[in-house]
Amino acid sequence: MKTEELQKMANKLRLEAVRMIYEGKDGHPGPALSIADIVSTLYFDIMKVDPKNPQWEDRDRFILSKGHACPIWYAALNERGYFEPKVEHFELRQLGSTFQGHPSMHSTVGIDMTSGSLGNGIAIGAGMAAAAKAQKKDYFTYVICGDGELQEGVCWEGANVATGRQLDNLVVFVDRNGWQSYKSVEFTVGQNNIADRFRAFGWHVQEISGHDIDGIKAAVTMAKGVKGKPHCIVCDCIKGKGISYMENNNAWHKGVPTDEQYEIAVKELGGEK
């Protein structure tokens, strides 16, 4: 897909994510909006998937380690054609809904791994990547982590395994938006030097803007060319990207727009109510 189309798709996903939170009256808009461009580029340009055969053995895998951002993933799966018929109202977080509060692989078609308990995506992704190696298959595993969740120790346990096993078929995007539930990452742990840490763990590391579609594409192409090391793409992102009153406003880590706020969001994202 062309860059402009991917950008347009990212905003469509943003709009859908905010709509499902608005309709469901619960969810995490800020963390979802920050990764919209990465998710759009992955699902509509990079990843080798077949929505009509979601369990295809050779498909690329995707793990949303920061599972609370799932509205953007649900929107992407919907636009990519995983659901038949296409979903109009997601009923996010409602009783009996296909769309659980955090991603569940047995509830929603296209979800490769349950997530939501922070910190586990890298290690699980290492398992998927190790499976590809054992099976002599060429699929890639993509993971999106938050910068806050890297405080979980198991992230670095997984990073060790990926290095030790030379899992060059594992690509981890880190959404470095600088925020976590309470305050900033810097307030919490004094620094947010993610690239240095992954380099110290032996990873191939790149730093890009998480809202630059061409940059995301180029970084994945570059990663695929580097053998013998797992890949970390540190993405500088704006939490709440795309909606003026949500951008860099951590009050929108979790929250539901009012009717008026929702109208503003629709307008800013160029959608129709």
């Binding site: 791994m113 290492a126 398992g127 198991v154």
Partner: peptide
């Protein structure tokens, strides 16, 4: 080999089994 890291070993196992 996951090293001395049981949480990671279980996660790696989940990833392998899912694939």
């Amino acid at each position: 080999e996951c090293g001395i890291a049981e949480q990671c070993a279980v996660d790696v196992g989940a990833g392998l089994a899912s694939a």
